[in-house]
Design a protein around this nucleic acid. Structure first.
Lengths: 116, 116
DNA sequence: CTGTTATATACGTATCAAATCATATAGTTG
DNA sequence: CAACTATATGATTTGATACGTATATAACAG
């Protein structure tokens, strides 16, 4: 596996631009509502209206978050008549989420244990 | 592997609190300066002053980011005399970064290819 | 064309976070 | 004790962004 952040071969620190791009990816995932949208798309593509129902947010808000998610390539867009369907474009983003969930779990367990 | 975000067994959507916690983890990683600090800590613990030198940021700013990173359990703290040393507490956070770097790479390649 | 539906966006507001400066705190040295 | 060093934090400014309301755009139906 090639490591771009933790490079075994080159010690040079990442460029400003590179760090900005990586940070942007994380930042996009750093909003509960966007995670909710992502979760709603796990079992396949959905239209904006369906996502509005699934999330309970306003149409405008969902639409904006969808632009953000699609803008960074996390979601794909497909137009069909009046409706626009969004889908998870790179399933590996779900691995990311699970990774974070896993370490969150571990930390919560550790803290619980520390309380006794 | 247990999946907390993408659960095969339960379809119930994640609670508000859970999503907030997951989002917070991503958000913490969503700042270039914090990634820079993280990168500086790859080859072992460093004092605040060393991190100030490595990142080029002000002492106050580095200190604040360190509080943030330590607060979510990403970094560990060790006090020795006047100095405080920080270290990466859970190495798996580096996997996360590389994961993002990888998908970033893929997207950039795809866009480059699309230009031709 | 008119009306209707689905989605996107402009604008205003409120909130939050990053950075800086100045200062406080804690540990060390003499 | 005073002076010094390393780190943390309060106060402020500034910039970003999430959300709501209203409106614009686009596709379709009649």
């Amino acid at each position: 596996m090639s490591r771009a952040f933790v490079s075994k071969t080159q010690k040079r620190s990442p460029s400003e631009d590179f760090l900005r791009m990586v940070a942007e990816r994380f930042r996009v995932l750093g909003e509960p509502m966007r995670l909710r949208i992502l979760h709603a798309l796990i079992d396949g593509e959905k239209s904006v209206t369906e996502l509005v129902e699934a999330t309970g947010a306003t149409q405008a808000n969902v639409s904006r978050h969808l632009q953000t998610l699609a803008g960074t390539g996390i979601l794909g867009r497909r137009k069909e008549g009046l409706r626009v369907f969004y889908r998870i474009r790179d399933q590996s983003v779900l691995d990311l989420c699970d990774h974070v969930c896993g370490s969150l779990d571990r930390d919560l367990r550790e803290r619980t244990k520390a309380l006794r």
